[in-house]
Design a binder for these strands. Structure first.
Lengths: 335, 335
DNA sequence: TTGAAAGCGCTAACAT
DNA sequence: ATGTTAGCGCTTTCAA
């Protein structure tokens, strides 16, 4: 039932080599034969098997993307950007949600390897550099998104988290805020650390005192974020502004504020990070540090493809700059 | 550099047939040899190539999922559910966002075919049954999600849209509403038609008059939805309640209401559909008809795998029931 | 219990 | 300009 190159060759009265050549546009074949073969392929609805062609050493035109969770809008948007750019180059995308579980991640890496993907884009926060090392050792092209891997020389696309934090902090200070809380998702991850560091530095640069008790961890869920934000707002000397290290936590903070009877931005200014679709959905719309998600996906894929094609001799790190988008969740402090 | 079954055979001093047998657990081999071979495979970090094994006729353990847009939270959640269930069975997932563009869809189908995926889950609103027919003809296992394909006998997992609409309508009527608007995303698609039909029927069953001018199309974006909702709210005899055919449109409606100085739910009750993560994020939290997204993904994968394994003789349609989740965006009509 | 050998569908020299 | 043929890494009879 399934058509093979032999069927086409037979039907066209030529050799399989000739068919292969017209498929790939290689070698030299007369216009006449080419057209004839193409016609026969059409008639037979023949589609060359990429499995077979991959076995002969050609590319699989497949890449893998590991992310913590596809249901998280930020990563869904990243994935979409990667998918689109990949598709433009004829690549298909394997999605791998790891929930930041090292075992799951390892299993995915293993599968991707066995399926001979051409390369992998890693957007997970791998604590286990071990797995990556193995891949590197096996010469699997890899590009990292939004995470640093100081011990490994890998192509990386990242956002300047420090600058983003600095922008958020400056914005709030310039609005007159002096007590600024920070809600991180996870202090272990370097991107969070940098966002915090940037925000604190902005405060320092503007002569604002820093209160360590105002920096808290909000976790990965709306619920945990709301809890953390609530405790922040219930302190003895509550903040008038809050910088959340991602949009989800920012929304959790707004919800917490509302529960405490605090109006945003009147009583509390909130700034997020990421600029996911969520930022425009909520009320008040969210002032947030925008990551150039499309560009991140595009550059990650482009780097990976260069790597795959062996067009690169050295690794590089692309640092993209974030941009503060001012919406309605931040305002000048009440007089 | 890359290890093959030959390397393992050599290193273990056995034939490749033996190695193959221990990999697959087939044939009979002494415990001694098995252990020895396993040890050698470990030492060599050997991973069998699924490309080669697929070429010999075995499954690729890969499925494709076509959706309109991965960046849309509803489809991201569906994709995550499909991914998870597939992963439990050792399948990897190719993501294909088509933007409902028939050409893109066709291109994806073509690629998936060439890569010999074991099956495809289709969650796009294919206007072109043509492509599906070709796949069916080629005996590619297919499962449809959330869309009807009356002309084709295909395994399908769907939600009872009519019932969902009915639940939404009943809820609003029981709250005392008499002027109920409906915002659809696209009247061409049957699931929207059914949701509307259900809502209207609920109104009729409760003796509520139906005003056709209160049914409008809101499109696929927040912006277009807000525009449509605005015009709905600006009519001569504005509605006191609105049923949106998905959460995105519901949110757009709430935004439109706010822009008009209308409070939700005080002046306007809003009910959505899908129960995506968005529903809990906005204020007021959204009353919405919940789709059992996990279950949809699970059943779609299970059906597909049965199909792949040839364990099914007849096609079937799984109709899952939606459930109304009452939150804060709907309330009894003002006296 | 193990191995030899014939494919799977395609590519890429190398001939012709 | 076209065809012959030897792999690619694995599975699977069929012998031994």
């Amino acid at each position: 039932m399934k058509r093979t190159i032999y069927d086409v060759a037979d039907a066209a009265g030529v050799s399989i080599a000739t068919v292969s050549k017209v498929i790939n546009g290689t070698g030299r074949i007369s216009d006449k034969t080419r057209k004839h073969v193409v016609a026969v392929m059409d008639r037979l609805q023949y589609k060359p098997s990429m499995v077979a062609s991959a076995l002969t050493g050609k590319s699989t035109y497949t890449i893998g993307l590991t992310i913590p969770d596809l249901a998280n809008p930020y990563f869904a948007e990243i994935a979409r950007a990667v998918e689109d750019r990949g598709h433009e180059h004829g690549f298909n995308l394997f999605i791998c949600s790891t929930d930041n579980d090292p075992e799951k991640e390892d299993r995915y890496f293993s599968l991707l390897t066995q399926k001979r993907v051409d390369g992998i884009i890693v957007a997970t926060r791998t604590s286990k550099e071990l797995f990556l090392k193995q891949l590197v050792q096996k010469k699997v092209p890899i590009v990292l998104i939004a995470g640093e891997m100081p011990a490994l020389a890998l192509d990386t696309v990242m956002v300047d988290d420090y600058l983003g934090g600095y922008q958020a902090g400056s914005h709030l200070v310039e609005l007159g805020h002096r007590r600024i809380a920070i809600l991180a998702e996870d202090l272990d991850h370097i991107s969070n650390q940098e966002r915090i560091r940037g925000c604190l530095q902005a405060m320092r640069d503007h002569g604002v005192a820093i209160d360590d008790s105002l920096v808290q961890v909000g976790g990965f869920t709306l619920d945990s974020g709301r809890t953390a934000a609530t405790s922040l707002l219930n302190g003895s000397e509550p903040p008038t502004a809050l910088f959340a290290c991602n949009d989800l936590l920012a929304i959790a903070s707004i919800q917490a504020a509302r529960e405490q009877g605090l109006k945003v931005p009147d009583h509390l200014s909130v700034v997020g990070f990421d600029n996911t679709i969520l930022a425009t959905m909520i009320d008040p719309s969210l002032t947030t540090v925008a990551q150039p998600i499309q560009e991140i996906g595009r550059q990650a894929v482009d780097l990976l493809i260069q790597e795959i094609r062996n067009e690169k001799s050295i690794k590089q790190r692309a640092v993209l700059l974030p941009e503060l988008i001012i919406r309605q969740s931040s305002a000048a402090i009440e007089p």
